[in-house]
């Protein structure tokens, strides 16, 4: 019943083997190579074999959110071709994963190739969701000495990712997860929103930073580098930089102290 759906629901039955494909995301491809590396290392630590399809580009979300669904569908079709097969697709981004399992089927509603796109979406896992719910890993070894503020990025709403990331982080020795005010509020990135609504976006980000700073964390962590790029960029421009990390980087670094 399509109309009764919530905006975001994690697909119910997804493949969860240890041979996986990885989608790096365009942001990691361009800026955050260490996050992509950490993703591979964390997955390999868990015994996974990681394939990286060379032809991959982007999940198609920028055009989807911008309203240019024709352009977006071209990119999604390309992605479906590049990620052909039935392996789990692991994405170090809640946002790109949600694009694959929720956004793409929405813009393909009236397209003849909807079934293929839905099939693609049903293989997509956000990284932490995969670790916790796909592989059944509930605690993380090693040590990471830091007060961590975890930003619940919006694409984890309605999915299993937020609580999973929080549980995993909390299980690491040395980590103190520090809560902060209005955690349910968006950071103001929103993809193209950040440049088409620059004033509102800045207002939202500034508020978020105020709440985070009040909790005095050593590290701000998220499962989406897009939020981190926005918040980190705002903080640095403001002359008060904060350390931002992807959860994958914390998991990888904790292993070094195992």
């Amino acid at each position: 019943m399509a109309h009764a759906q919530s905006a975001l629901i994690t697909p119910s039955s997804r493949p969860a083997g240890k041979r996986v494909q990885m989608m790096a995301t365009c942001l990691c491809d361009a800026f955050y190579d260490d996050v992509a590396r950490a993703t591979v290392e964390v997955l390999e630590h868990l015994g996974c074999t990681v394939e990286f399809p060379e032809g991959q580009t982007c999940c198609g979300q920028p055009a989807f959110n911008g309203g240019d669904w024709e352009a977006s569908r071209r990119v999604v079709r390309h992605t479906a071709k590049v990620f052909a097969g039935d392996l789990p697709i692991i994405v170090p981004s809640g946002s790109c994963a949600a694009m694959m399992f929720h956004g793409a089927p929405l813009e393909f509603e009236k397209q003849p190739d909807l079934p293929e796109i839905e099939a693609l979406g049903k293989r997509a896992w956000e990284l932490v969701d995969f670790i916790v719910h796909g592989l059944g890993v509930k605690t993380w070894p090693g040590r990471y000495q830091a007060k961590v503020a975890f930003h619940r990025s919006c694409h984890s709403r309605g999915t299993c990712t937020g609580p999973a990331a929080l549980a995993l982080l909390s299980s690491i020795a040395g980590i103190e997860v520090v809560p902060f005010g209005e955690g349910e509020q968006c950071c103001g990135f929103g993809g193209t929103f950040s440049v088409s609504f620059p004033n509102v976006s800045k207002g939202m980000g500034t508020l978020k930073l105020e709440h985070i700073r009040a909790a005095q964390p050593d590290v701000l962590a998220s499962i989406d580098m897009s939020c981190m790029m926005h918040l980190g960029g705002l903080a640095e421009k403001d002359g008060k930089p904060i350390k931002t990390l992807h959860v994958a980087q914390i998991l990888r670094d904790a292993l070094k102290n195992a």
Binding site: D33, A36, V40, V195, G205, H230, L234
Partner: peptide, 28 residues
């Protein structure tokens, strides 16, 4: 390439991280 093309708008209020294009693919 980057989903935030109007760079000047982005940079008015935010910095942008260093460009690391291709680094991950090379590492792989």
């Amino acid at each position: 390439l980057i989903p935030v093309p109007p760079m000047q708008t982005w940079l008015r209020d935010r910095t942008l991280p260093a460009w690391r294009g291709g680094a991950f693919r090379k590492w792989m």
